[in-house]
Design a protein around this nucleic acid. Structure first.
Lengths: 236, 236
DNA sequence: TATATAAGTTAGATTAACCTAACAAATAAG
DNA sequence: CTTATTTGTTAGGTTAATCTAACTTATATA
């Protein structure tokens, strides 16, 4: 049985290694930072997780999950996102409120509970932030996504998820009038500071580059004519 | 903010002091026993809880909750029983499965979650074991109950709750054909070993004294003509 | 009431998860 | 290719929650 803390390390490791496709592994500082602990603490825990055969790790080397570690991590992500969906759909939480509570609920140990919750929610595919919920087999379908910041001037796209799940960002997203599945047209891009002028539901607004980098979109027809939305997700 | 462990001590203390009406307070061994720790461990924690003004405690004396400690404990019991009700009513758990998972869920910190869960369940009054769920104000209505073992020969009564919530006992209760709200007639009582012959739904069976002492009942008309079922609960 | 037993406390040790400070290795920059 | 910087590790210490063993206080009984 894994402790809360161990589970959090595994989850953080999964999140880091999933950041981009060909990531070789996580670093100690990176991991420590994600978990709000000091690097020395992370080193200690990594030795422990290595002994338990949950991570591949050697001194001064890159860190990655073993197959077993990965399976655990995915199960935690599954629980997290199922609980978020429960809070959102059944208990009327807003999308900026669900993350914090799910951070606690994801550690509840009961396979039956997870299975029944999944069933109760009719096997949802996405959580309230648009992230894919791993299925019961532990398959994590990872969609190829681009951020709003990468969309070319004049292009239209559809918002599918957010990168930053913090309450602060999510509230801001709502304020700008955005939400999952909204169609966004990029009217113009300022070359000086990369500010974007976008149109959503016939309302025009301006957003910063930082903001745009945290909005995931798919756009069916890109400038070069090739689709960037591989709608058939890849199982990683 | 209280730790899991501190919460468990408060809950155990409430359970012990509620055992019977004029209980002066808990003992260290009693408490340690309930929590499956050694008395020495309990002593340490009691000092800590005393410093936090959650328990009234002095060396070698009886232990009781302060008003604040009690309020905390009741909130934990409320959460426990609401979660049990959720698992039972919404996720089709059986009554012998809910306790274990609720032991974990009761520690989730989110006032909003508790309130919304209560609302989602339509403000239930009783959990699957027949125990009263404290309301949002922290009022714990304690019903005056007698056990099946105290019912006189020839009397009829109604099962309202169980004393022992362990999965083993609950499965046995089901096997005997009993459940909350069943009407039970005590046909005879063996004077030698206090075995009871009871009739439930026209089925006659025999139960031990130990068993009968863990079944709570109300019986409207007792031998002496006085009602033992004070249906208007007392708020303690 | 004196003493045996039960109940409760103290002291000292352990483990998990964290820290700081000092050091070592790897990488980047001149 | 040497040095500066970043990154990561080690050593030693802290806190919460637990333990065992030895001791003290309270209670029950002869």
């Amino acid at each position: 049985m894994l402790s809360f803390t161990e589970e959090n390390y595994l989850k953080a490791l999964l999140q880091i290694t999933l950041e981009f496709d060909d990531k070789p592994g996580a670093g100690t500082n990176e991991l420590a930072n994600q978990l709000n602990v000091k690097p020395a603490t992370a080193t200690d825990m990594l030795k422990k997780l290595k002994d338990k055969k949950l991570v591949d790790y050697k001194k001064y080397g890159k860190i990655s999950l073993t197959a077993i570690g990965r399976r655990h991590a995915i199960e935690i992500v599954r629980k997290h996102r199922l609980w978020e969906t429960f809070l959102f759909k059944k208990l009327s939480f807003t999308w900026d409120e669900v993350h914090e509570v799910a951070e606690q609920l994801e550690h509840i140990q009961s396979q039956k509970l997870v299975d029944r919750l999944d069933e109760f929610l009719s096997y949802p595919e996405f959580d309230p932030h648009g992230d894919v919920i791993p299925n019961a087999k532990g398959e994590l379908r990872v969609a190829f996504k681009k951020t709003l910041a990468e969309v070319a001037e004049g292009q239209s796209c559809k918002m599918v998820a957010v990168k930053d799940n913090s309450a602060g960002f999510l509230k801001y997203v709502v304020k700008v009038g955005l939400g999952i599945n909204n169609n966004i047209k990029v009217l113009s891009k300022e070359s000086y500071d990369a500010m974007l002028t976008i149109e959503v539901n016939d309302v025009v607004s301006s957003v910063s580059q930082k903001f745009a980098q945290n909005i995931f979109v798919v756009c069916p027809w890109c400038e070069d004519g090739k689709s960037c939305s591989k709608t058939k997700c890849e199982i990683k």
